[in-house]
Design a binder for these strands. Structure first.
Lengths: 234, 234
DNA sequence: CCAAAAGTGTTAATCCTACACCCATGT
DNA sequence: ACATGGGTGTAGGATTAACACTTTTGG
């Protein structure tokens, strides 16, 4: 039964690119390591895949350990496995991006590290190839969000249209025409207007909306039919 | 320096979903294993990641070993790592889809297995979770091809418009209106018409085209700007 | 001469884009 | 009363979708 015994084994890690949105800008959650190696340096939150868990589970555990959150939207988005990418031995790392509402995140579960939100384009130097990981994750987020409405995962249960708009502007680093954007948003039937306003961010107040969950789940899951659109430019 | 010595190591494999197009239907290249374990059963082509190579390199090596082809379009598209997915020990497998022109593939390099093209929806039972891998790869191919013109990787250097059309029909399992499709294709400026016809597949003959390589490379690389399109349905 | 596949144009509907003003409120 | 941000409508242009006939040529 030992067919594979001559094959090399490797350490397998997962690293999480945790995106959050605070209502204004897109952020990532980084940790300052309290343990060796690379103590006191900033990095992504990660961990090793254990013998009794799949990589997805490992990523969920990592996220739980840092945030206390479960059932978070996560997606595998990269593989980093250059033989020399870490100095302490060969580690192949799988990256996952996670989308969380920053308001949900209240405290760190362990004290092996400090954690802090940073604007996605303005964060301290990171260890190893973690910067590349973020770059790849940002790209994956944009690609996915172009086809599926996953960015709602970053918003609280009740949110306002100006918030969604700011979120899309942050993710795509662009400015949107609010009239066009609002129209498109509403015409998607994804939003249900509530009889309540957010008066915190403006005097007039913006109506809260919640997701049409049934439709949302359909659209999240939904599968491409046909769209040869070469029209996208760089 | 042995910070990680208490962490578990695992076998890391790569499995390749090799898509090919023969001018009519979308195919995948499968092998009938000549060696244990699972001898004489059909499976994807795969191999273990070696100590001196990255997973991408391992995937390229696997592909080379099977087809003799290098510089093939490949993309990582899945991670399969349930602790019990293989009976012979724990193996985490990274999947890559590859796109090749079946005409380029002439012979197998080793004799450890038999290899054969199968229609993508009509192939023998596969070992382990290889069927899931194909499902995921098909989805990834559709998603990617919806945004980038990667399907040209499946075509020979000279190809006809009816061929591209058939390819898109195969990938998206749909029928296309050739007038609309042709117009869109031509308006992309990706194609350069040649003064030569393929008379093999029809009496009238279809003009050959080749890719406008400069533009193609731009578009392949190009990065999403902004397209919140929730309009895609399942 | 006929079967089989290639190639081509027009119209109506839809969607996208650009653009500017009024509204509600807290200070 | 005014500053701040929320909310709305329209018109022109571009893109898409639906539609059928002619061309070429090998057999």
């Amino acid at each position: 039964m030992d067919f594979y015994k001559s094959e090399p084994k490797t350490l397998l890690a997962v690293d999480c690119i945790i995106f959050g949105f605070d209502g204004e800008s897109l952020q990532i959650l980084l940790i300052k390591r309290g343990l060796e190696p690379e103590r006191n340096k900033w990095s992504l939150m990660g961990g090793f895949v254990q013998a009794d868990e799949s990589p997805e589970e490992a990523a969920s555990h990592v996220l739980f350990k840092l945030t206390g959150l479960e059932n978070v939207y996560m997606e595998q988005c990269g593989v980093f496995g250059n033989p020399n990418r870490e100095k302490y031995g060969r580690v192949v790392s799988l990256t996952y991006f996670a989308l969380i509402d920053t308001k949900q995140y209240t405290h760190i579960i362990t004290d092996e590290y400090e954690a802090k939100w940073f604007p996605v384009n303005k964060h301290p130097t990171l260890i190893f190839d973690h910067l590349d990981m973020i770059t790849v994750a940002k790209r994956a987020l944009r690609t996915k969000a172009a086809l599926y409405p996953i960015l709602f995962e970053l918003l609280p249960e009740k949110f306002t249209i100006p918030q969604i708009s700011a979120l899309y502007e942050a993710v795509y680093d662009t400015e949107l025409d609010k009239r066009n954007f609002n129209r498109k948003l509403l015409s998607s039937d994804l939003l249900i207007k509530l009889n309540e306003k957010d008066k915190e961010h403006s005097k007039k107040g913006a109506f809260y909306y919640k997701l049409n969950m049934d439709l949302y789940k359909e659209k999240i899951m939904s599968f491409l039919r046909y769209l040869p659109s070469w029209s996208i430019e760089g």
